[in-house]
């Protein structure tokens, strides 16, 4: 079987407050070892975190590009304060076409210069995608809750317009963002005096129901799923339905191993069942889910009828 070199594997931006050292080590290893084609960098969740790691950005970009990766810079999902408006404006002013915009403030600043549309932009349908393409979008990351039938229609429209189309296939789903920081709240603080308590939770702060069921993860102003979205058996169908890019979200697990598993499935170098078992062992006890893709409750894990 021919190696699938058309579909690109991407690494999404780190959602958590990993320290500068952790990030440096993480991206060095990604550059050297991870079979991903494209890497998204930048702080998407909390503008207070950016100063901790933005100084390292030029070196990280250089390192990844020398390893042959395309680097894309992602903008904040929530833009309200002066520093957030400024950060968005500064990124949108950059010459590179590889900017991923996650807030309409970024679209305003970018104008018709080429850009990517991030998962927070709510590109739910072909009409919106057509509008965005007319304004300079070259690539769309679809919302995480879109079911398979809508993904197929949206992706077909996007490809006909010459756009890249991306779907998250691994990692916790982003379920909500807020102006309030729930990490700070959990420690009886507010966003302004948070003392960066979120740094202690590299994979999000777990919330359990009162009868002890794990349910959600808190990451600053973001609420995430307890489960990792894992669309491994679904990759064949995604590719058949015009998805050009598969996104892996960084979690506190061996992301090189995760990328390798997905790469092997794309290359048909490994059977899906075998790959799924490997992914399972890399992610230890974290539950997997694919409910959104199958039009069911997002937390659910639906067995595919027959492997692609």
């Amino acid at each position: 079987m021919a190696v699938n070199d058309m579909t690109k594997l991407t690494l999404g931006p780190i959602a958590y407050h990993w320290s500068a050292d952790t990030r440096r080590d993480f991206y060095a290893r990604i550059a050297d070892e991870a079979p991903v084609d494209e890497v998204y960098l930048g702080e998407v969740i909390c503008s207070k975190r950016a100063p901790f790691h933005e100084a390292d950005l030029p070196e990280t970009i250089d390192r990844l590009e020398r390893a042959g990766k395309t680097v894309i810079l992602s903008t904040l999902a929530e833009v309200m304060l002066k520093r957030e408006r400024k950060a968005t404006e500064d990124l949108a002013a950059m010459e590179t076409p590889e900017i991923e915009i996650n807030n309409a403030a970024g679209l305003f600043a970018r104008g018709k210069r080429p850009h990517r549309i991030g998962p927070f932009m709510n590109a739910y349908n072909e009409a919106t995608i057509r509008w965005m393409a007319g304004q300079g979008a070259t690539h769309i990351c679809l919302p995480g809750e879109l079911p398979a039938d809508a993904i197929a229609v949206a992706a077909k429209a996007a490809r006909e317009l010459g756009l890249g189309v991306e779907v998250q296939v691994f990692g916790r789903a982003s379920l909500a963002v807020s102006a309030r920081c729930y990490h700070a709240r959990a420690h009886d603080r507010t966003k302004d005096n948070c003392q960066f308590v979120c740094e202690a939770d590299a994979d999000g702060m777990p919330l359990r129901t009162t009868d002890n069921s794990p349910i959600l993860r808190v990451n600053g102003i973001q609420t995430q799923s307890e489960s990792y979205v894992a669309l491994l058996p679904e990759t064949g169908e995604l590719i058949a339905n015009n998805i050009s890019h598969l996104r892996l979200m960084p979690q506190a697990v061996d992301m090189v191993a995760v990328a390798t598993v997905f790469r092997d499935v794309l290359d048909r170098a490994r059977a899906v069942d075998d790959a799924d078992a490997m992914l399972r062992s890399v992610c230890r006890t974290t539950p997997f889910s694919n409910g959104f893709y199958h039009g069911k409750a997002g937390y659910r894990r639906i067995a595919m009828a027959s492997p692609a």
């Binding site: 709510n122 609420t223 409750a297 997002g298």
Partner: peptide, 19 residues
């Protein structure tokens, strides 16, 4: 509480989407 139009909490538990 959440930024409106960016919340999939209900869909995560029930399969019905706010958006």
């Amino acid at each position: 509480l959440m930024v409106e139009g960016r919340c999939s909490l209900t869909n995560y538990l029930t399969g019905q989407s706010t958006n």
